[in-house]
């Protein structure tokens, strides 16, 4: 009898575990997909490959998180978005982001000239669009 109960409990626990894993998987997919809908396709692709790695809710660097978490973009209030866009324009223009140390290990994440141009253009137009209340 006791053995039977144990087996049932184990089965239940396994079920719970699988459920939890499924939920986690779903959440993580949900998160990485969010960046896609929020930004224009090309912009989203650049952000995802060169920025989101550090600037996301799960990231380790507190500084990076404090600056911006791109997976939360949709939740930011409009003034905050405009503020971040201004800073993005600055750090991209000055070549401060992605950081040199990071690029030493991940040289492929360096923004190409075209990517830089595209992001800069977007930060400007998006900021103007937000200010006009569209």
């Amino acid at each position: 009898m006791f053995h039977f109960i144990l087996v049932v409990m184990k089965k239940k626990m396994l079920g719970v575990l699988i459920g939890a894993l499924g939920l986690l998987l779903f959440l993580s997919f949900n998160q990485s997909n969010r960046a896609d809908d929020v930004f224009p396709e090309e912009v989203g692709a650049i952000l995802k490959s060169s920025c989101l790695g550090c600037h996301n809710t799960e990231a380790r660097s507190e500084d990076a998180k404090k600056a911006v978490q791109f997976d939360l973009w949709d939740d930011y209030r409009v003034t905050k978005k405009i503020g971040i866009l201004g800073k993005m324009g600055e750090v991209i223009e000055e070549g401060k982001m992605p950081p040199k140390k990071f690029l030493e290990k991940n040289p492929d994440k360096k923004l190409t000239e075209d990517q830089t141009k595209l992001l800069l253009e977007w930060t400007k137009t998006e900021s103007e669009r937000l200010m006009q209340g569209n």
Partner: peptide, 18 residues
């Protein structure tokens, strides 16, 4: 310019709050 003003106003709140 307008965008810089907004950025500054968002910043002032964040730095005092932090």
């Amino acid at each position: 310019d307008k965008a810089d003003k907004i950025e500054f106003l968002v910043d002032i709140c964040e730095v005092v709050e932090a």
